[in-house]
Design a protein around this nucleic acid. Structure first.
Lengths: 187, 187
DNA sequence: GAACCGGCGGGACAAATGTCCTTTTTATTT
DNA sequence: AAATAAAAAGGACATTTGTCCCGCCGGTTC
């Protein structure tokens, strides 16, 4: 549920350090609660998370929202938007103070065109996202909320991650009322 | 809902024709109903659909299933498994008679390692899958079955695709009973 | 044509989930 | 410590969805 990617982390770290004029990749900070990317807007840069935790979620006009995943160290955002040349698919919000490598769009494009290693890392990361997203969608459709919630709590404990009830509900696609009820059932 | 990829189609077509000894890429046929890939088993080859329609779905022991998507011309299967070196994530079944380019695993790997165009095509295709899967997951969680079903029927009509009720239910993650009820509500 | 399937649709009740609003808890101020 | 405000939890009812089962309909067999 909290995804990370160490390979990307060191890849960008190295790229960052080997720049002559520190123009293509900058380090940028966001405070907790800040929106890093906004659904529907163009992404100004591609980011790779250096430190902190973010959530990636869809907004639907009203107050409803659906959390796609939580992203931590190394995870890249804005990449899909550059590749498909489209505005942001969903929102990315900092849950903790966050530090990122901010990579310029043209530089990202040049990596895509020239760097096989970068391509390989991207493919690997995309593959994992597909596995995660489709497995989860299937799981949540096929199992009871009780079952899914139990699994979620396990993962949360295993990763020492704590999430607000609101976010848990948005992750499960249920209301808080329903979450509370199910929480009781699990003791 | 029925995904296709013309770029891949012509890419493999060309590769197929330019082989000297027709060893790396073969054309293979499956009859309607046949399982092309089985969840949990190793994928013997990577396939690209030349003709026909398939469904990609998860199995859960019992009779429950969840349909991830329907794949048509050009779509590639078994690719994720090669990249992540893992057994098949889900089942792929032919819905109509299907013809595929069957690409050997080693050859796929060599394309991944050497061919930037192939990498680009793969990234593009993966990006679309991510967009599709996460958008749909969000949509289905956030909207009523009625709303989602209406959308599904639209798409189906637009694509001239007809699906069994069983498959529609599996796609929506509901029972057939529930599907019938909602179908009535929409007239 | 009568008897017998087998598949599909729908009725009836049970379980799960959402909505609305009240009650309880927690935190904050004075 | 008492008072108040803000947030979280829970009760009650409405709606949705699932489960189980019955009856209708088309086809097949004798």
């Amino acid at each position: 549920m909290l995804r990370t990617n160490n390979t990307f982390l060191s890849y960008f770290e190295q790229l960052y350090n080997s720049q002559q004029r520190k123009e293509e990749i900058l380090i940028k900070e966001f405070s907790a609660g800040q929106l890093i990317l906004q659904q529907g807007q163009n992404a100004p840069k591609v980011y790779s998370i250096k430190e902190g935790i973010t959530k990636c979620f869809f907004d639907e006009g009203d107050d409803k929202g659906f959390i796609v995943e939580f992203l931590g160290k190394g995870e890249v955002i804005g990449d899909i938007e550059v590749i498909k040349n489209m505005p942001c698919l969903c929102n990315i919000q900092a849950l903790t103070p966050v530090q990122v490598y901010a990579i310029s769009v043209p530089f990202t494009r040049s990596l895509l065109e020239k760097d096989l290693l970068f391509n390989k890392l991207m493919l690997d990361s995309f593959a994992e996202r597909i596995i995660n997203t489709s497995t989860r969608a299937s799981f949540q459709q096929l199992h009871t909320v009780e079952h899914t919630l139990a699994k979620l709590l396990e993962l949360q404990k295993a990763q020492g991650l704590d999430i607000s009830k609101e976010d848990m509900a948005a992750y499960l696609g249920i209301t808080i009322r329903s979450l509370n009820r199910t929480l009781k059932k699990l003791l």
